[in-house]
């Protein structure tokens, strides 16, 4: 796997230092402005607006891959560092954690929600890829249904062959009663996300429990079925983690749109009523 992919925190120190410098400078300027009987909210507000705009540009960058705007990994680092900076800049701008107006509360809820979803996304982007690498298997998310169907067909062919050659229906009956459910579609979604060993134990138990009822030839078929079940378990793991990596954006991006609308509304209200 290419080492440039994913988010590597140590490599983001440069951006983090720059963001810290910008934040501290803004803070110092705000304090100075307030002490000089000025209104620092304007300055901090515009800085926050530009930070949010920079964060939103990451989405645009992903939609314009043909433009020479630098690698996406760099943009991701800037996005993550900028996201943290935006939270602190938000507190500096508002001067409080929770506003008292309905309008302020709505904007704050949206901002906190996008920040929390971003943080969860960052955690997943940091943890999940390495966990997927540990499976020593690569699966394209869109091809998982095909992969599962192939495994299922393979297992069913094995079971059928075993039944015909050994004139015994033990394996087939067990498949129909238990293993068929497992091979139908991805299972143990939450267990896979939490990194639980429940799927592994389940597969092991369901295969081993049958071993004493089978003869030597049937056991060879069972071993093959077990190997396919293990492969399917890894695909399930890929499915669960990759689905999370894709669907958290289903929350993050709509919230980003809502925040941007509210930010523009806020700018307009300030411009109309205050400036």
């Amino acid at each position: 796997m290419n080492k440039q992919q994913g988010f590597s925190l140590p490599r983001g120190w440069g951006y983090a230092s720059l963001a810290s410098l910008i934040f501290i400078s803004t803070w110092a300027w705000a304090v100075r402005t307030e002490n000089s009987l000025g209104i620092s909210d304007f300055f901090t507000g515009w800085v926050l607006f530009f930070v949010i705009a920079l964060l939103a540009l990451f989405g645009a960058r992903k939609r314009l891959p043909f433009l020479p705007l630098g690698p996406a990994s760099r943009w991701l680092k800037i996005h993550v560092v900028g996201g943290f900076m935006a939270v602190f800049m938000f507190w500096l701008h508002t001067g409080e954690v929770w506003p008292s107006s309905f309008y302020g509360q709505l904007l704050t809820v949206l901002f906190y929600a996008i920040s929390i979803s971003g943080l969860i996304g960052l955690l997943m982007e940091t943890v999940f890829p390495s966990q997927l690498t540990h499976t020593k298997m690569e699966v394209i998310y869109e091809r998982i249904p095909k992969e599962l169907a192939e495994i299922r067909n393979e297992v069913e062919a094995l079971v059928e062959e075993c039944t015909k050659k050994n004139a015994s229906s033990v394996l087939a009956e067990h498949y129909l009663e238990t293993l068929r459910w497992y091979f139908q579609r991805p299972r143990f979604f939450m267990s896979n996300i939490y990194g639980s060993e429940k799927p592994q134990h389940w597969v092991h138990q369901q295969c081993m429990i049958l071993e004493r009822f089978l003869n030597e030839k049937e056991c060879k078929y069972l071993d093959k079925v077990y190997l396919l079940a293990e492969k399917k378990r890894k695909i399930d793991f890929h499915y669960a983690l990759q689905k999370m990596l894709k669907t958290w954006l289903l929350i993050h991006i709509p919230l980003a749109g809502a925040v941007m609308v509210m930010v523009f509304w806020h700018l307009m209200v300030i411009q109309v009523f205050f400036v």
């Binding site: 309905f102 309008y103 302020g104 749109g257 809502a258 609308v261 509304w265 209200v269």
Partner: peptide, 28 residues
């Protein structure tokens, strides 16, 4: 996006009826 825009437009219209309780422009 449409929901937020609808909320802004709706609250502007309802502002006077609800005495500013749902005002989207009330700063607090």
């Amino acid at each position: 996006l449409l929901a937020v825009i609808a909320l802004i437009v709706g609250s502007l219209g309802l502002d006077s009826h609800f005495n500013g309780l749902v005002s989207i422009s009330d700063a607090g």
